[in-house]
Write a protein that binds this DNA or RNA. Structure first.
Lengths: 345, 345
DNA sequence: AAAAAACAGGCAAACGTTTGCGTGAAAAGT
DNA sequence: ACTTTTCACGCAAACGTTTGCCTGTTTTTT
């Protein structure tokens, strides 16, 4: 009841037993007599004793903490992922240390270092866009700290990761539009430097060729994901000789920008131009003019799987501290979700 | 380069000096000769020595970690707040341990306990909706762990908190509508059990009476924040003898539900009915029919201030470990933001 | 040249807990 | 009644670091 937490030592002193006895009694170690066990437990209860997790971590060299480094906490995708990570960590009695890199490589490196020094048991990382060197990850490997990458995966081999397979969703997206009768389908993609752009493009091409359609590269335009950039991209497509009647966009926001612009141009979004995009943000369910469908990437699921893998790795490590046997490479399939809620309840 | 991190001991052994010398050398303690300092630092560098933060925490009884407990990580408001918290903690060299209560009191209690046991230096909490007992916070006080509450504040005195003053925003909201010529203004509020509902109602009433308008309690209806609830609430208001031409809603989502319903009823949202709401979610900037304005609560700012206060408390504590002098009660003023982006760039 | 001060560094305890090993005493076996 | 087990517990080291105090050497002071 004072100011300082009770310790095992105090209990030992009061009960005139050794600290080891107290420790074992609290762990219900069979070698401690039942009477002493009860005495110890009773006193511990009375004093409000709670083990100093910090001391235990230090002693065991294990913190029961996993670190999470992501680009941006406030992005819907990541906050959903983190929510999942925290949930699954909690279930397995782990705590979560978070930090955001703000897509800055240098900060990411610092954070990895810091996490290593605070002795997290393992790490979950979605790497920064700009990250181009990967020595900081090697270091973790050297110190035998398991890492699971998610969503943004560095181009390394022998790593664990869970990512989303954009191809399925992309193909679904294009197929969906083809089924609806569209024959000229544009793609407003993101910057070519982003891996995500590559995936979208590949899916698009694959879907076109699979359907034995002539694939026209000039129907693919890049944009910098800003509103102005989107407008320019859309203008480009609209001026195309085979003016597209449907457009796939890099993400929901691009679709929204494009839609706004299209409406200002007087285009009928029910008949003349339809959009399909990526992310499936809740927002599009509230809008009158929105992409007709969007590719869901299941951030919660991804976070969950990544955390599961990491925790699995950690428990394996406890049992056999030798090296890794195999690498987890999990792909969660993206999926096209139709935007049903247009003006209906 | 091996598997285990280098320690101060190893450096000491190699250099044939004592560990204390190494420790002091690395801290550039003046009592260590410059030559040894350099020797030590050089070797430390070479071995890739990094202090074991865990051991330091244990030794010092200080973890340089703050805990954050919030209801739901994936809610935009909270993820923005956490982002701010992490940013300011990072700047002051603190790390952040997070956990979500999912608005469950029991879990919240467990989390507080867990955070205490892992010896976080301080805690930032937004309490769960259901929390009705506050013994777990008292415990923190007994153990001299500073707590700063934010956004959701428990009804206790002698606590630190930062919250958002809804009144200013509410008054602004109503005034805004009055200025636009509306004379019958409805309020679709949240459940009466929520403190947030009370604040909105008070602001509404205050604004009405300040403008010498007869305040009609029947223009205030509650809803459970679901889409159906919102429809019912709106129907109620529309059937009112003094049918409102403007409505203030509990949050943006309620506005969106109401707007959707109103449009299905064929109401002209430019002329006959206008909405103002709370939250100012980015989403409303993308919509064709959206609240004309929304009360911003500045989650990032709130998180930032809360973290600042906590870190301040912690540094004070280092200097004078005696009790608290004063309690921080910070109110950030909410502010009505007009929704400008309707179909314009 | 003797005394005092400044310098450089070592010793050891402390933080709280876990755990391998050792050891008396009681119980069981013969 | 004597040896062997079993039982119940204590001892002490270890985890890595910090820090108050002590000690030996050098420099300064007078």
């Amino acid at each position: 009841m004072t100011g300082k937490p009770a310790t095992i030592k105090e209990i030992a002193k009061i009960l005139n037993v050794s600290v080891s006895t107290v420790s074992r009694a609290l762990h219900k170690h069979p070698t401690i007599g039942i009477t002493t066990q009860l005495k110890v437990q009773a006193l511990a209860e009375k004093l409000g004793y709670e083990p100093n997790q910090n001391a235990i971590s230090f002693q065991k060299g294990k913190t029961y903490t996993i670190g999470v480094i992501i680009p941006e906490l406030s992005e819907a995708f990541f906050s959903a992922a983190i929510s999942a990570i925290e949930d699954t960590a909690y279930k397995r009695n782990y705590t979560v240390l978070i930090a955001q890199s703000h897509d800055n490589e240098e900060k990411e490196i610092q954070l990895v270092e810091k996490m290593k020094n605070s002795r997290v048991d393992g790490l979950l990382i979605s790497v920064a866009k700009t990250t181009s060197s990967f020595a900081h990850f090697d270091m973790l490997k050297r110190f035998n700290i398991p890492v699971v990458f998610f969503d943004r995966i560095p181009p390394l081999k022998n790593i664990h990761y869970v990512a989303c397979n954009m191809e399925t969703g992309s193909i679904e997206a294009v197929n969906y539009l083809l089924q609806k009768g569209h024959r000229s389908i544009g793609l407003i993609n993101g910057p070519a430097t982003l891996a995500a752009s590559g995936e979208r493009k590949e899916g698009y091409i694959k879907a076109m060729t699979k359907n034995r359609l002539k694939f026209d590269p000039s129907l693919i335009v890049s944009c910098n994901l800003t509103e102005e950039g989107t407008r320019a991209a859309l203008d480009g497509l609209l001026a195309h000789k085979r003016r597209p009647t449907a457009i796939v966009t890099f993400n929901d926001y691009v679709s929204l920008y494009a839609i706004k612009h299209a409406r200002n141009l007087g285009i009928d979004l029910d008949k003349d131009l339809q959009f399909v995009s990526y992310a499936n943000l809740p927002i599009i369910n509230y809008m009158d003019y929105a992409p007709v469908a969007s590719v869901e990437q299941f951030p919660y699921l991804q976070g969950q799987k990544a955390a599961d893998i990491l925790l699995d790795l950690l428990s394996r490590k406890e049992q056999s501290p030798d090296g890794v046997q195999a690498y987890y490479n999990v792909m969660v399939e993206s999926q096209l979700i139709e935007n049903k809620t247009k003006n209906s309840y």
